[in-house]
Design a protein around this nucleic acid. Structure first.
Length: 451
RNA sequence: GCGACCGUAGCUCAGUUGGCAGAGCGCCAGGUUGUGGUCCUGGACGUCGCGGGUUCGAGCCCCGUCGGUCGCCCCA
């Protein structure tokens, strides 16, 4: 391999089979989005660097691919996520947008991380956002859209779990042990890192938050509290250590999930926090055993305001193609060879002699003008066996054999009269699935292929 | 940014104590004035990731570098 140029670290080349897999996933995303009433949007691939420090701080710059035009003064960054662009687009339209506004996007993103399983430097992520409503029904609709896409890809209930929590409900539990309101954010962060910190460090930080009760014990309780979404909330309330009445937000969400028929996919998990500070209500992640989270999202009622827009309640999620692709492969839901996902030709045309070959270009053109996916051999050989082999490999449904007036099933060993006179003449139409072959006039070919 | 393991044909890999770079699959062409995804024969394809070092001689040993894989940090 004398190729001295390599693709940049953490990027992928999409050869046809890979591209077919990518389109397969994107088709499921788009289909679920559209069926649920979302409209597709997109924004620029790069933004002003400052857009990304608004909500994430300067620290994020290390995770970005940022650049400055030669001789320019503005700093830009390749987009690492969609939410800032979305918030900017919403803010720019002010209150002119309908309520609700339901948008989705399937952009590529760039993060300057060290690649590892499920994490690359360029990836595709499906973003779904519902703006303008702060109802449990909106939360449920967004979650249902994610599930619909996973189902379309062949995943079943039990393959993945939607783990749900609610910032409001968890905040209630934290307040119950005396965490002051201004420390709730820090307490969330600690809950998020509960199992990553050494026990002493965890205890030290818990003690520093000024709770009147044992915060460490309360956080551990929260981190362990799980229950099926279909079950009553009494048990979860007991595990969390609050009266069931405190979990009203979960009850309303549970009712919405039940109405949408997806509660059996869902599980309460108070250990789900999401790293971002801006989540204000429901937060959720979709997990499968042995993989990173397939998707994550939640309610962020204050974010559009943060970017200069009107107060806009919103709920949304992101689902990346890398982890999802790994999961589908592990579950045997992707073909071993992605070529199987490419569009199948309707017809593959071969010529059995030179006269027929001369007619091929105009015949193939007319098939294509008629809307058919038509391919043909580029080989010089007139060996019909080889040509049909090629037709078979193309996965075409039918082969059309031109100039084959005297050989083959049903042809009856003609005299050779008419060979080469394809227009108006006879062609052989072979069903490559069944092997059946019949002859018909050229004039009937298109209607035969379209029926 | 840190650590571990790995880089030989398009793909999967073999390659002995350091001694002339191999196989299968795939691809291309013939066997076949002819009906497919079978078979037979032949062919093309390699600076052994790249650069340096040790050696009479390096795919093999040493150093560096670039990739890949898997962890850590981070995770929008």
């Amino acid at each position: 391999m004398a190729n001295s140029h390599q693709a940049p670290k953490g990027t992928r080349d999409f050869y046809p089979a890979d591209m077919a897999v990518r389109r397969h996933i994107e088709a499921a995303w788009r289909g679920a989005s559209i069926r649920h009433g979302f409209d597709e949007i997109d924004g620029p691939t790069f933004e002003h660097l400052g857009l990304y420090t608004v909500k994430s701080g300067e620290g994020i710059v290390n995770e970005l691919f940022s650049f400055r035009r030669a001789g320019g003064e503005n700093d830009y960054a390749l987009r690492p996520e969609f939410t800032p662009t979305l918030a900017r687009m919403v803010a720019a339209r002010g209150s002119a947008l309908p309520v609700p506004t339901k948008w989705f996007a399937v952009p590529n993103f760039f993060r300057a991380e060290r690649p590892q399983r499920g994490r690359l430097r360029e990836f595709f992520q499906w973003n779904v956002d519902l703006l303008g409503l702060d109802t449990p029904g909106a939360d449920s609709e967004v979650i249902g859209t994610a599930i619909a896409a996973l189902e379309a890809l062949g995943l079943k209930q039990g393959d993945v779990t939607v783990k749900l929590s609610h910032r409001g409900a968890v905040a209630g539990a934290l307040r119950a042990v005396g965490v002051p309101d201004e420390q709730l954010g820090a307490a969330f962060a600690l809950l998020d890192r509960r199992d990553k910190l050494p026990p002493e460090e965890f205890a030290k930080r818990a003690a520093a938050l000024g709770a009147t009760g044992d915060l460490g014990e309360a956080i551990t309780r929260l981190a362990r509290a799980t229950a099926p979404a279909s079950a009553g909330l009494d048990g979860l309330a007991r595990d969390v250590g609050v009266p069931a009445a405190e979990l009203g937000a979960l009850e309303a969400l549970r009712d919405a999930l039940r109405a949408a028929g997806i509660e059996d996919w869902c599980q309460w998990d108070c250990g789900i926090v999401r790293g971002l500070a801006y989540y204000t209500g429901v937060v959720f992640e979709i997990h499968a055993a042995g993989e990173r989270a397939v998707a994550g999202g939640g309610r962020y009622d204050g974010l559009v305001e943060l970017f200069g827009g009107p107060h806009t309640p919103a709920v949304g999620f992101g689902m990346g193609d890398v982890v999802l692709g790994n999961l589908l492969r592990d579950k045997g839901l992707l073909p071993a060879d992605g070529m199987e996902l490419l569009p199948r030709p309707d017809v593959f045309v071969v010529a059995a002699n030179d006269a027929a070959a001369a007619q091929m270009p105009s015949i193939v053109s007319s098939l294509r003008r008629a809307g058919l996916h038509a391919r043909h051999s580029y080989k010089a050989t007139r060996n019909v066996g080889k040509l049909l082999g090629e037709a078979g490999k193309s996965r075409a449904r039918f082969a059309v054999i031109l100039g084959d007036g005297c050989v083959g099933a049903g042809a009856g060993g003609g005299t050779g009269a008419g060979m080469g006179e394809v227009p108006g003449g006879i062609v052989q139409l072979k069903d490559l699935g069944s092997g059946e072959q019949r002859e018909l006039p050229m004039s009937e070919l298109i209607s035969a292929l379209k029926s």
